[in-house]
Simulated assay, not measured.
Amino acid sequence: MLDRRTLRRLFVPSRTLARYMVRMHLGRFFGILIGLTAVLQMLDLLATSDEIMAAEGANWVSLLSYVSMRAPQLISQFVPFTALLATLLTLATLNQHSEVVVMKASGLSAHRILLPLGIASFIIAASHFLFNETVVVKANADLEYWQDNGYAVDLPPSAGPSGRVWIKEHKTVVLVEAVSQIRNRVVLDKVSLFERDDKGKLEAMVHADFAWYQDGRWTLHEVRRFDAGTHEMTIHPSQPWDLETRPERFQALTVKPDHVSFPKLWQSMQELKKDGLPTARLMASFLQKMAGPASSLLMPLLAAVAAFGVHRAGNLVIRVVFGMALGFSFFVADNFMLAMGEFGVAPPFLAAWAPFFLFLVVGYAVIFHTEEGRLPRKAKKLQEKPIAGE
């Protein structure tokens, strides 16, 4: 039976080599990420600074607040792209300095050469997922809330999810303009009820400024009821509302996948499933929360073409360009399938993971074609070549 040390050496033959490659890759990754984020943030700030400073009482603190909310979005968006550039730069440097030749001469296969970069990519992917769940979702919600209120200064904290909701309760159609949560109480703003008879004909319209759920029941406040038959208008300060829909359903209907964490999104989907409502759109975004960070794991495979082969006569530049083309193709396919999943055209799992597995196969095919498959062909040619003097 293989002991732990022998098993480790099967995958990581040299800790020194692994640390060297991981440190090289992560150093380039963070350097490119910081530089790219700084440039993009500056351009974005120049484009939006007029709107931010147009708010009454806005000053330099408003600009800093915008940067603190916008920068996490830029970082999360460009992590996979930065991982691709860092991997290409690392492998091209190793190839140019003939370090890959030394590794291959010591008996390392292409997979074992790429393994340290795979470890670094796993660290990046895990950090990316945690960063999205702890920082980016809150930044997305806060920034959208601030933008919806015209970048107002001294804006009170957001009360939770908001958005227009339509539901049907028996013969009544309910329209809610916004859903919020104040402490433990769910509040519905600008509630409209359209009461219909058995034939679907409108009987009355009820408008309330707000409604809240307390002690197991709903209450409408500032109620105005218009009877379509008698044309009479009645006004009440408040009245009970016999609505069977739970507050969790309203919150689930207004949830935005980019604004909530992984467990919260799963909980919202379960609430919708209890009411028999479709969750395919949310499921696509739910799976994308894992597939997005996992895309960094593909970058060593897609960029491996820059590591193997001679670099003279401009070959290395062509290989780097080919690796970038593979990476950009993956990003295009990933965004396309995500859009198909959000529109309900593609199944959620296929929309989130199909590009990943497709380019996983493409990456391995490129390695076998350019590196692993070349050795048997060369050996066969040497066997068929006649020896001089025979």
Rank of each mutant, 00 (worst) to 15 (best):
R5Q: 12
R8K: 05
M21W: 02
M21K: 00
H25A: 14
R28Y: 15
L36Y: 09
A38Y: 06
A38K: 12
A38I: 04
V39S: 10
M42W: 14
L43G: 07
S49E: 10
G57I: 04
A71I: 07
A71K: 03
P72Q: 09
L74R: 06
A86C: 06
L91C: 08
A92I: 06
T93I: 03
Q96V: 01
K104G: 01
K104L: 09
H111Y: 15
L117F: 12
F122N: 00
F122E: 11
F122V: 15
S127H: 01
S127M: 14
L130T: 10
F131L: 12
N132V: 02
V135Y: 13
A139E: 10
Y145E: 06
Y145N: 02
N149A: 07
A152Y: 02
V153M: 01
A159G: 15
A159S: 06
G163D: 04
I167W: 04
I182F: 11
V187D: 12
D189C: 00
K190R: 10
F194K: 02
F194V: 00
R196W: 01
D198K: 07
G200E: 08
L202F: 08
E203F: 00
M205G: 08
A211F: 05
Q214D: 14
G216D: 09
W218D: 08
E222W: 10
R224H: 07
F226C: 03
A228S: 05
G229V: 12
T230W: 00
I235K: 13
I235D: 13
P240K: 04
D242Q: 12
L243I: 04
L243Q: 00
L243V: 07
E244C: 00
P247A: 12
D258R: 13
H259M: 06
S261G: 11
K264P: 02
K264E: 15
L265Q: 06
L265D: 13
W266V: 06
S268R: 15
M269S: 14
E271C: 09
K273T: 11
G276Y: 05
L282H: 12
A291R: 04
A303Y: 03
A307L: 05
V310Y: 14
R312D: 12
V317L: 15
F322A: 15
M324N: 01
S329M: 07
F331Y: 10
V332F: 08
D334C: 00
F336Y: 13
F336C: 01
A339Q: 06
M340K: 10
V345Y: 02
A346P: 02
P347W: 02
L350R: 02
V362C: 13
V362N: 05
T370D: 15
L375E: 15
A379P: 02
K380H: 08
G389P: 01
